[in-house]
Amino acid sequence: MKNFQILNMTRIIRLVMAILMLPLILNAQPVEMADTMRSEGKIYVVVAILLLIFAGLIAYLVMLDRKITKIEKRLSDERGPDADL
């Protein structure tokens, strides 16, 4: 009889615990992320395109930089060495 009561008590406690934890379990649904895209490897396509655009923009910026350097040189040649403002 005593054994039966203890067994019952543990069952009730387990049940109460399970009910208390229910919201936690329901909340633990996985957050949706772009996992499929990653597993298919398509994310590398995105990175490749972004890198190419970035490389193109930087190349353009470097060319602009060089062009300005050339003009600066031409200007300082025209005015002599101490032509600083």
């Binding site: 957050v31 992320m33 995105v46 990175v47 972004l50």
Partner: peptide, 18 residues
Amino acid sequence: TIVAGFLFDVPRLNIVNE
């Protein structure tokens, strides 16, 4: 930034997701 920003793991959070 471009490589790691898209390929590294980020926390899985609701609403903001990726």
